[in-house]
Protein backbone atom coordinates (compact mmCIF):
# COMPACT_ATOMS: atom_id res chain seq x y z
CA UNK A 1 0.00 0.00 0.00
CA UNK A 2 1.62 3.22 -1.04
CA UNK A 3 2.21 6.01 1.39
CA UNK A 4 -0.52 8.68 1.30
CA UNK A 5 -2.81 6.73 -1.01
CA UNK A 6 -6.52 7.03 -0.30
CA UNK A 7 -6.57 3.50 0.99
CA UNK A 8 -3.71 4.19 3.39
CA UNK A 9 -5.41 7.28 4.75
CA UNK A 10 -8.74 5.47 5.18
CA UNK A 11 -6.92 2.73 7.04
CA UNK A 12 -5.39 5.33 9.35
CA UNK A 13 -8.80 6.91 9.89
CA UNK A 14 -10.15 3.51 10.87
CA UNK A 15 -7.28 3.07 13.32
CA UNK A 16 -7.96 6.52 14.72
CA UNK A 17 -11.56 5.50 15.29
CA UNK A 18 -10.56 2.41 17.23
CA UNK A 19 -8.07 4.24 19.42
CA UNK A 20 -10.47 7.15 19.86
CA UNK A 21 -13.22 4.77 21.00
CA UNK A 22 -11.00 3.55 23.80
CA UNK A 23 -9.77 7.00 24.85
CA UNK A 24 -13.38 8.22 24.92
CA UNK A 25 -14.45 5.60 27.44
CA UNK A 26 -11.57 6.45 29.76
CA UNK A 27 -12.04 10.18 29.30
CA UNK A 28 -15.71 9.95 30.29
CA UNK A 29 -14.69 8.74 33.74
CA UNK A 30 -12.34 11.67 34.22
CA UNK A 31 -15.06 13.99 33.11
CA UNK A 32 -17.78 12.55 35.38
CA UNK A 33 -15.62 12.66 38.48
CA UNK A 34 -14.05 16.00 37.73
CA UNK A 35 -17.31 17.75 36.95
CA UNK A 36 -18.89 16.60 40.19
CA UNK A 37 -16.14 16.95 42.79
CA UNK A 38 -13.41 18.81 40.93
CA UNK A 39 -10.94 15.97 41.29
CA UNK A 40 -8.39 14.93 38.69
CA UNK A 41 -8.37 11.28 39.52
CA UNK A 42 -4.91 10.14 38.70
CA UNK A 43 -5.64 6.52 39.58
CA UNK A 44 -8.18 6.28 36.78
CA UNK A 45 -5.67 4.76 34.35
CA UNK A 46 -4.81 2.06 36.86
CA UNK A 47 -8.40 0.90 36.87
CA UNK A 48 -7.96 0.36 33.16
CA UNK A 49 -5.05 -1.91 34.07
CA UNK A 50 -7.12 -3.81 36.64
CA UNK A 51 -9.83 -4.21 34.02
CA UNK A 52 -7.34 -5.63 31.54
CA UNK A 53 -6.00 -8.19 34.02
CA UNK A 54 -9.40 -9.30 35.20
CA UNK A 55 -10.42 -9.63 31.55
CA UNK A 56 -7.44 -11.85 30.92
CA UNK A 57 -8.34 -13.96 33.93
CA UNK A 58 -11.97 -14.31 32.81
CA UNK A 59 -11.01 -15.15 29.25
CA UNK A 60 -8.55 -17.81 30.38
CA UNK A 61 -10.84 -19.29 33.00
CA UNK A 62 -14.19 -19.15 31.26
CA UNK A 63 -13.78 -19.60 27.53
CA UNK A 64 -17.19 -17.92 27.48
CA UNK A 65 -18.53 -15.51 24.88
CA UNK A 66 -16.75 -12.17 24.81
CA UNK A 67 -19.80 -10.12 25.75
CA UNK A 68 -20.00 -12.00 29.05
CA UNK A 69 -16.38 -11.10 29.70
CA UNK A 70 -17.12 -7.46 28.87
CA UNK A 71 -20.01 -7.51 31.31
CA UNK A 72 -18.00 -9.08 34.10
CA UNK A 73 -15.13 -6.66 33.64
CA UNK A 74 -17.63 -3.81 33.78
CA UNK A 75 -18.93 -5.12 37.09
CA UNK A 76 -15.40 -5.46 38.46
CA UNK A 77 -14.66 -1.84 37.53
CA UNK A 78 -17.95 -0.71 39.07
CA UNK A 79 -17.07 -2.31 42.41
CA UNK A 80 -13.49 -1.03 42.39
CA UNK A 81 -14.79 2.48 41.78
CA UNK A 82 -17.10 2.25 44.78
CA UNK A 83 -14.32 0.88 46.98
CA UNK A 84 -11.81 3.56 46.05
CA UNK A 85 -14.28 6.35 46.60
CA UNK A 86 -15.30 5.03 49.99
CA UNK A 87 -11.86 4.29 51.36
CA UNK A 88 -9.74 7.08 49.93
CA UNK A 89 -11.68 9.98 48.54
CA UNK A 90 -14.63 10.34 50.88
CA UNK A 91 -12.50 11.03 53.97
CA UNK A 92 -10.70 13.93 52.31
CA UNK A 93 -13.66 15.34 50.41
CA UNK A 94 -13.60 18.71 52.15
CA UNK A 95 -9.82 19.12 51.83
CA UNK A 96 -8.27 21.40 49.17
CA UNK A 97 -8.25 20.18 45.56
CA UNK A 98 -4.55 19.46 45.55
CA UNK A 99 -4.96 17.04 48.47
CA UNK A 100 -7.41 15.03 46.39
CA UNK A 101 -4.94 14.98 43.55
CA UNK A 102 -2.11 13.79 45.82
CA UNK A 103 -4.43 11.13 47.23
CA UNK A 104 -5.14 9.87 43.75
CA UNK A 105 -1.39 9.70 43.10
CA UNK A 106 -1.08 7.56 46.21
CA UNK A 107 -3.88 5.26 45.11
CA UNK A 108 -2.27 4.97 41.71
CA UNK A 109 1.07 4.04 43.26
CA UNK A 110 -0.67 1.53 45.52
CA UNK A 111 -2.50 -0.21 42.70
CA UNK A 112 0.52 -0.30 40.41
CA UNK A 113 2.84 -1.67 43.04
CA UNK A 114 0.37 -4.23 44.30
CA UNK A 115 0.19 -5.23 40.67
CA UNK A 116 3.96 -5.57 40.47
CA UNK A 117 4.00 -7.44 43.77
CA UNK A 118 1.40 -9.96 42.74
CA UNK A 119 1.89 -10.18 38.99
CA UNK A 120 5.51 -8.98 38.50
CA UNK A 121 6.31 -6.10 36.20
CA UNK A 122 6.79 -8.41 33.19
CA UNK A 123 4.33 -7.71 30.39
CA UNK A 124 2.05 -10.63 29.51
CA UNK A 125 0.48 -11.39 26.23
CA UNK A 126 -3.24 -10.82 26.08
CA UNK A 127 -4.65 -13.60 23.93
CA UNK A 128 -8.18 -13.35 22.69
CA UNK A 129 -10.15 -16.16 21.08
CA UNK A 130 -9.16 -16.69 17.45
CA UNK A 131 -12.45 -15.73 15.88
CA UNK A 132 -12.00 -12.22 17.30
CA UNK A 133 -8.75 -11.88 15.38
CA UNK A 134 -10.37 -12.68 12.06
CA UNK A 135 -9.92 -9.96 9.44
CA UNK A 136 -12.81 -8.04 7.94
CA UNK A 137 -12.39 -6.09 4.72
CA UNK A 138 -14.48 -3.08 3.78
CA UNK A 139 -13.17 -1.66 0.53
CA UNK A 140 -9.49 -0.92 1.00
CA UNK A 141 -9.74 -0.91 4.77
CA UNK A 142 -9.19 -4.02 6.80
CA UNK A 143 -9.68 -4.52 10.51
CA UNK A 144 -10.18 -7.34 12.98
CA UNK A 145 -13.51 -8.50 14.37
CA UNK A 146 -12.50 -7.28 17.81
CA UNK A 147 -11.80 -3.80 16.42
CA UNK A 148 -15.34 -3.63 15.08
CA UNK A 149 -16.64 -4.79 18.46
CA UNK A 150 -14.58 -2.11 20.23
CA UNK A 151 -16.00 0.68 18.10
CA UNK A 152 -19.57 -0.61 18.23
CA UNK A 153 -19.54 -1.26 21.97
CA UNK A 154 -17.93 2.05 22.79
CA UNK A 155 -20.48 3.91 20.67
CA UNK A 156 -23.35 2.04 22.30
CA UNK A 157 -22.03 2.77 25.78
CA UNK A 158 -21.52 6.44 25.04
CA UNK A 159 -25.03 6.85 23.64
CA UNK A 160 -26.70 4.98 26.48
CA UNK A 161 -24.75 6.92 29.05
CA UNK A 162 -25.79 10.15 27.43
CA UNK A 163 -29.44 9.06 27.53
CA UNK A 164 -28.98 7.99 31.13
CA UNK A 165 -27.74 11.39 32.26
CA UNK A 166 -30.33 13.18 30.17
CA UNK A 167 -33.49 11.33 31.08
CA UNK A 168 -33.21 9.24 34.25
CA UNK A 169 -33.66 10.52 37.77
CA UNK A 170 -30.12 9.54 38.81
CA UNK A 171 -28.74 11.01 35.62
CA UNK A 172 -30.46 14.30 36.31
CA UNK A 173 -29.19 14.23 39.87
CA UNK A 174 -25.67 13.79 38.49
CA UNK A 175 -25.93 16.74 36.19
CA UNK A 176 -27.46 18.81 38.98
CA UNK A 177 -24.69 17.90 41.41
CA UNK A 178 -22.08 18.82 38.83
CA UNK A 179 -23.66 22.23 38.39
CA UNK A 180 -24.37 23.14 41.97
CA UNK A 181 -23.60 20.74 44.76
CA UNK A 182 -25.27 22.69 47.59
CA UNK A 183 -28.44 23.33 45.67
CA UNK A 184 -28.56 19.62 44.87
CA UNK A 185 -28.50 18.83 48.57
CA UNK A 186 -31.38 21.22 49.05
CA UNK A 187 -33.39 19.31 46.44
CA UNK A 188 -32.97 16.23 48.62
CA UNK A 189 -30.41 14.63 46.33
CA UNK A 190 -28.17 12.25 48.22
CA UNK A 191 -24.91 13.75 47.01
CA UNK A 192 -22.76 11.02 48.53
CA UNK A 193 -24.63 8.49 46.50
CA UNK A 194 -24.31 10.52 43.32
CA UNK A 195 -20.56 10.78 43.80
CA UNK A 196 -20.33 7.07 44.47
CA UNK A 197 -22.27 6.23 41.31
CA UNK A 198 -20.10 8.60 39.27
CA UNK A 199 -16.99 6.82 40.50
CA UNK A 200 -18.60 3.45 39.87
CA UNK A 201 -19.70 4.18 36.31
CA UNK A 202 -16.47 5.96 35.41
CA UNK A 203 -14.37 3.10 36.76
CA UNK A 204 -16.55 0.54 35.06
CA UNK A 205 -15.95 2.21 31.70
CA UNK A 206 -12.22 2.41 32.39
CA UNK A 207 -12.13 -1.31 33.16
CA UNK A 208 -13.97 -2.12 29.94
CA UNK A 209 -11.50 0.12 28.10
CA UNK A 210 -8.75 -1.99 29.69
CA UNK A 211 -10.12 -5.08 28.03
CA UNK A 212 -10.25 -3.20 24.73
CA UNK A 213 -6.69 -1.94 25.19
CA UNK A 214 -5.39 -5.43 25.85
CA UNK A 215 -7.25 -6.80 22.85
CA UNK A 216 -5.97 -4.08 20.57
CA UNK A 217 -2.32 -4.10 21.58
CA UNK A 218 -1.97 -7.71 22.69
CA UNK A 219 0.13 -7.01 25.77
CA UNK A 220 -0.64 -5.93 29.33
CA UNK A 221 1.42 -5.10 32.43
CA UNK A 222 0.83 -3.56 35.85
CA UNK A 223 2.21 -0.23 34.64
CA UNK A 224 0.18 -0.16 31.43
CA UNK A 225 -2.47 2.20 32.81
CA UNK A 226 -0.30 5.22 33.35
CA UNK A 227 0.01 6.57 29.82
CA UNK A 228 -3.49 5.78 28.52
CA UNK A 229 -4.89 7.27 31.73
CA UNK A 230 -2.92 10.44 31.40
CA UNK A 231 -3.74 10.69 27.71
CA UNK A 232 -7.42 10.20 28.36
CA UNK A 233 -7.18 13.12 30.73
CA UNK A 234 -5.59 15.11 27.93
CA UNK A 235 -8.50 14.01 25.74
CA UNK A 236 -11.04 15.17 28.30
CA UNK A 237 -9.31 18.54 28.56
CA UNK A 238 -9.19 18.93 24.77
CA UNK A 239 -12.91 18.28 24.41
CA UNK A 240 -14.08 20.05 27.55
CA UNK A 241 -13.79 18.16 30.79
CA UNK A 242 -17.06 19.32 32.29
CA UNK A 243 -19.21 17.57 29.73
CA UNK A 244 -19.42 13.92 28.73
CA UNK A 245 -19.86 14.93 25.11
CA UNK A 246 -16.66 16.95 25.35
CA UNK A 247 -14.78 14.00 26.76
CA UNK A 248 -15.96 11.78 23.91
CA UNK A 249 -15.11 14.33 21.26
CA UNK A 250 -11.69 14.84 22.85
CA UNK A 251 -11.11 11.09 22.89
CA UNK A 252 -11.69 10.84 19.17
CA UNK A 253 -9.69 13.97 18.39
CA UNK A 254 -6.76 12.59 20.35
CA UNK A 255 -7.09 9.12 18.81
CA UNK A 256 -7.10 10.57 15.30
CA UNK A 257 -4.27 12.99 15.88
CA UNK A 258 -2.05 10.32 17.40
CA UNK A 259 -2.65 7.92 14.56
CA UNK A 260 -2.15 10.61 11.95
CA UNK A 261 0.98 11.89 13.69
CA UNK A 262 2.53 8.46 13.48
CA UNK A 263 1.03 7.55 10.12
CA UNK A 264 1.73 10.68 8.12
CA UNK A 265 5.10 11.82 9.45
CA UNK A 266 8.42 10.16 8.63
CA UNK A 267 8.95 6.99 10.71
CA UNK A 268 11.83 8.37 12.79
CA UNK A 269 9.45 11.02 14.14
CA UNK A 270 7.02 8.49 15.58
CA UNK A 271 9.03 8.15 18.79
CA UNK A 272 8.06 11.72 19.55
CA UNK A 273 4.34 10.91 19.58
CA UNK A 274 3.87 11.27 23.32
CA UNK A 275 5.86 14.49 23.41
CA UNK A 276 3.44 15.74 20.78
CA UNK A 277 0.40 14.71 22.85
CA UNK A 278 1.58 16.53 25.95
CA UNK A 279 2.70 19.58 24.07
CA UNK A 280 -0.82 19.63 22.70
CA UNK A 281 -2.14 19.44 26.27
CA UNK A 282 -0.07 22.40 27.43
CA UNK A 283 -1.03 24.42 24.37
CA UNK A 284 -4.74 23.69 24.84
CA UNK A 285 -4.59 24.51 28.54
CA UNK A 286 -3.09 27.83 27.63
CA UNK A 287 -5.21 28.94 24.72
CA UNK A 288 -8.58 27.29 25.32
CA UNK A 289 -8.54 25.77 28.80
CA UNK A 290 -12.27 25.09 28.82
CA UNK A 291 -11.85 22.77 25.82
CA UNK A 292 -13.70 22.54 22.54
CA UNK A 293 -17.20 22.12 23.96
CA UNK A 294 -16.49 23.52 27.39
CA UNK A 295 -17.96 26.47 29.13
CA UNK A 296 -15.68 29.05 30.58
CA UNK A 297 -14.29 28.23 33.95
CA UNK A 298 -11.44 29.23 36.14
CA UNK A 299 -8.58 27.11 34.91
CA UNK A 300 -6.39 30.10 34.47
CA UNK A 301 -6.01 32.98 36.80
Amino acid sequence: MSFLSIGYILQQVANGFILGSIYSLVAIGFSMIFSIIGLINFSHGDILMLGAFSALAFITALHGPIWVVFGMVGVVGFLIGIAIERVAFRPIRSAPQVTGFITSLAISSLIENFGILVLTAQPRSFNIPDYLNGLLNVGAVSFRVIDAIIVALSTTIVISLYMYTKYTRMGMAMRATAQNIDASRLMGINVNRVIMIAFAIGSSLAAIAGLMWGAKFGQISPLMGFLPGLKAFVAAVIGGIRDIRGAVLGGYVLGFSEVLFVGLLPPDMSGYRDAFVFTLLIVILLIKPEGMLGREEEVIK
Partner: peptide, 9 residues
Amino acid sequence: RLRGHYLAV
Protein backbone atom coordinates in the same frame (compact mmCIF):
# COMPACT_ATOMS: atom_id res chain seq x y z
CA ARG B 1 -0.56 30.79 34.54
CA LEU B 2 -2.43 27.56 35.20
CA ARG B 3 -4.19 26.95 38.46
CA GLY B 4 -4.00 24.20 41.03
CA HIS B 5 -3.96 20.72 39.68
CA TYR B 6 -4.01 21.89 36.07
CA LEU B 7 -0.51 23.10 36.77
CA ALA B 8 0.32 19.70 38.25
CA VAL B 9 -0.83 17.91 35.11
